[in-house]
Design a protein around this nucleic acid. Structure first.
Lengths: 154, 154
DNA sequence: CGCTTGCTTGGAGTGCACTCCAAGGTTCTA
DNA sequence: TAGAACCTTGGAGTGCACTCCAAGCAAGCG
């Protein structure tokens, strides 16, 4: 047995803080509307994620309705975070493919995450730059406002 | 003469750091391709900005070609910063309208800038949150990689 | 059982921010 | 003065990330 089999295979979760409102593993078969409530995504979006390969194939009830597991919710949490970074959906799909392809893709996943991290840092810097401009203009308007007020009170 | 007339009317620039590659005021009549070179925007986008009211009407040569001024470049710099904040174009158009409408809109402009500032701060926080998740996953992959390497060397 | 609410599908539609096109006039350099 | 490069317009097209639709089956309740 290799290290990869025990540590990287399958889940790719390396779970974060424990999630609220979940059922214990074993009874974790959520309907799509429960997942809507838990994630804030729409049912449309959940089905669309599945169609484009951003989700694994979701388990189905005997009549064909989707039943999501805790693992699916973990994956959606990660996708949510990646989406917040501004990562394009196509890149997230690529990451999902790498996970599905198995252990031999772990270097590529690692690189993808590091690149994303750099992008986030760059974006934060960019935003700090805009903040400087914004603050300059805001204090300009504040000064103008104060001057106007003293003008009025004369 | 009111304070507003001298400080807020017209330019709305409250200039930032001096810009490179510009001609002195008075000889500032740039063609669209010069503005493309200076701003990194495309000519299409510059014309589109004008059409939707994000730019004031640009001065024209006697044959109808656009001639941009230093003031137009200042405005484009501000628009670029606002765009970097993620502000929707429609909101930037709204801001441009307020500037055109004159001094009595200055409170609304002030509020808009402060709201934008709050949005930027929130976005930075959000990105910091994603950074935490990213760092956790990255160190997970790094550990898996190191473990695999020592496995191989045995 | 009937009723309401929920879930299914493929495909079409939406909103945003550009991006490009055709057909023709303008400006510059040799 | 010829040719290349640049500029003009309205309107159509693009790519992204959803978002919605119609028509029909499924689930839960009195």
């Amino acid at each position: 047995m290799t290290v990869m089999e025990t540590t990287v295979t399958g889940t790719d979760t390396c779970a974060g803080p424990p999630q609220q409102n979940r059922r214990p593993d074993g009874q974790d078969r959520y309907t799509i509307s429960e997942v809507v409530a838990l994630t804030g995504l729409t049912a449309h979006t959940l089905r669309w994620y599945e169609r484009i390969g951003l989700m694994p194939h979701i388990d189905r009830s005997h009549t064909g309705q989707r039943r999501y597991t805790n693992r699916d919710l973990d994956w959606l949490d990660l996708v949510g975070k990646l989406r917040l970074t501004g990562m394009p959906v196509a890149d997230m799909v690529r990451y999902a493919e790498l996970v599905r392809e198995g252990d031999h893709t772990y270097v590529e996943r690692f690189e993808l995450l590091k690149t994303t991290r750099e992008d986030v840092l760059a974006r934060i810097d960019e935003l700090r730059g805009t903040l400087a401009v914004l603050d300059r203009k805001i204090s300009f308007y504040a000064d103008a406002g104060r001057a106007l007020a003293s003008e009025r009170s004369r």
